[in-house]
Design a protein around this nucleic acid. Structure first.
Lengths: 195, 195
DNA sequence: GTCTATAGAAGGATAGAC
DNA sequence: GTCTATCCTTCTATAGAC
């Protein structure tokens, strides 16, 4: 959702901002948001704290700026999944979409769903519970059985682990993707349609 | 692992310590370890910081003290599971054991596996990777297929979510237990033995 | 076992020069 | 867009009285 078409050749606005996002995200994922000081981010970039404050007026806004790319993606995945008519097809499209998002954005997603600081931040700034309601309403659909919401949240939370935690990390992205999709299909009991 | 047999009638050593554990754990789970100051814990208990420092010489030791009850439990679950001869039986025993542990200790387990501060603390003080090696060696067994370790870590990480996160929380413990066991059996493809 | 008081470091954030 | 310098708050931790 960041400005995509910016006439080629022009130095992109916020080249420094992109580096800031990258550095901050890496440290957030490694040490947690609360465990990452603006000083540490500045040191890692070889600049001073004040340089960071040029881009964002507070740490909270920096965190939201780093996570921002996810929100549009999450909505897009929901849109694509909700377009299917049968529940299994919706669930499968959702699983495949989420796995794709996570494989490409493991750190960002792990910070979003796993960091306590972010959880509190979301409660006041962004509406993440609305996203969950959309899942229940539009993907699982009317009359959900008792276990599917639980299975979904177990999967959504658990799927970040293999990519960040030590033991299983380090697999090539295609294997990760295939294994995670299989996990999602198992826990949601989706019989694979002819793809 | 804390002293169990202490002649009855005697005021238990560390009645205050138990309350400290309880309070600290609740705040750790809610705000994260790094987001919970010793001041906040002391305030919550109605005492001063110095009183907390009477029980533990540092914040790190307090964190380890709060999490300590888990480690003996984790080993006991592994022992029970490893005693079975067939792999499906070992996996099922492990799933049932872990779900029981989590339902009774969601907050503690969530802090252990989810908190960035704890992750760093474990890397230096405790050997959590040894616990994972025991799982792979003694539960999954020789010649693990490619996906089972991934499925296990997705489940172990994900299973904490329904108990702490908002949407699905608030179910009665028996339902939670049954749903989580079912999730584990699905993702690990365990056909239920005659229980 | 709990208190007051305080040291010493680190954090978030701002002002103003370049 | 980045710097120096500074302010104020909060944090961990310790010393010593009760």
């Amino acid at each position: 959702m960041t400005s995509v078409t910016q006439s080629a050749g022009v130095r992109p606005r916020g080249a420094g901002r992109a580096q800031l996002h990258e550095t901050a995200l890496r440290l957030f994922a490694r040490d947690g948001v609360e465990g990452t000081s603006l000083q540490a981010i500045a040191d890692e970039m070889g600049v001073t704290k004040a340089a960071v404050y040029y881009h964002y007026r507070s740490k909270d806004e920096l965190v939201l700026g780093v996570l921002a790319p996810l929100f549009a993606e999450l909505d897009a995945i929901l849109d694509r999944a909700a377009a299917h008519r049968s529940r299994p097809a919706r669930l499968d499209e959702f699983v495949v979409g989420m796995v794709g998002l996570i494989v490409d954005n493991h750190a960002r997603f792990a910070v979003l769903v796993g960091d306590p600081y972010v959880s509190r931040l979301m409660a006041s700034h962004h509406d993440l519970s609305g996203w969950w309601l959309r899942i229940v309403d539009e993907i699982i659909g009317p009359q959900p059985d008792a276990i599917t919401p639980t299975a979904l949240i177990v999967f959504l939370t658990g799927m970040t682990a293999p990519l960040t935690k030590s033991p299983v990390a380090g697999l090539d992205p295609e294997t990760q993707r295939a294994q995670l999709i299989e996990c999602g299909r198992r826990i949601l009991q989706i019989r694979r349609r002819g793809t």
